[in-house]
Simulated assay, not measured.
Amino acid sequence: MSTQDIARMDTGEVVEYEPVTPIELEFMIRELGERLERAVPALKQMWHDRYEAERALIKAKAEAMLRSSASSVTEKRAEADLATMPHRLDFDLKKETLHAAEELQKALAARLMGLQNINKVLGQAYGASRN
C-alpha cells in the first residue's frame, strides 16, 4: 500500500494518513482522471476482442458438431466441446482480462471520488480558516 492510502479496502481499517497539499491533491485527481480517460479505447478494444473470441468459439463448435459422426446430440456436443477447447480458453482469457480491467477502472474511479471529496473538504477548511 502506498503512503497515500488511508484505509484498507478489505477490512476498512485506517492504515496510514499523510496529509498532502492541495496542489499535490489536485495533481493526483488530474492524473487519475486522465488515466481513466486513456483507458476507454483499451477497454473498447478488449470488448471487441472478447466478442470476436466468442464468435470464433460458437462457429468452431457448430462446425465440429456438423462434422461429428456421433449418433446422439449429447455425443456430438461432447466432441465439439473437446474439439474447441483452445477456442474456449481464448474466450475465457479475453473475458478474464476484460473483467480485470473493468474492476481496475472501478477501483480507480472510487479512488478518484475519494480524492475529490478530500479536496472539497480541504477547500472548505481553507475557506473557513480565511474568514
Rank of each mutant, 00 (worst) to 15 (best):
A53M: 07
A110G: 00
V73F: 14
K95I: 06
M65P: 02
S68P: 01
E102T: 02
G127E: 14
D49C: 01
Q45G: 03
A70N: 05
S71P: 03
A62S: 09
A39N: 01
E63H: 05
R30L: 10
K61A: 08
A64S: 09
S72H: 01
A110R: 08
A42R: 06
I58H: 12
Q116K: 12
R38F: 03
H87N: 10
T74D: 15
L66D: 13
R88A: 12
G123F: 02
I23R: 14
L104A: 13
R130W: 06
T21I: 03
G127F: 04
V14S: 10
K44Q: 11
M28T: 00
D10V: 12
E37S: 08
L122N: 11
K120W: 08
G33R: 00
L66P: 03
Q116G: 01
D81F: 05
K76D: 04
E24K: 05
M9A: 13
M1L: 10
A70C: 06
Y51C: 01
T74P: 00
A53L: 06
L66R: 15
A110Y: 00
V73R: 12
A100T: 08
T97A: 15
I58F: 08
T11S: 14
P41T: 06
L108A: 07
E54D: 12
P86R: 06
I6E: 15
E102D: 06
W47F: 07
R130D: 07
R55Y: 06
A70Y: 03
H48W: 07
T21Q: 04
L82T: 09
A128C: 03
Y51W: 09
R55S: 14
R130K: 13
L66M: 11
Y51P: 01
G114E: 14
V73C: 02
A125N: 08
A125I: 07
A101D: 04
A7C: 02
I6M: 08
Q45D: 09
R111K: 13
K61Q: 13
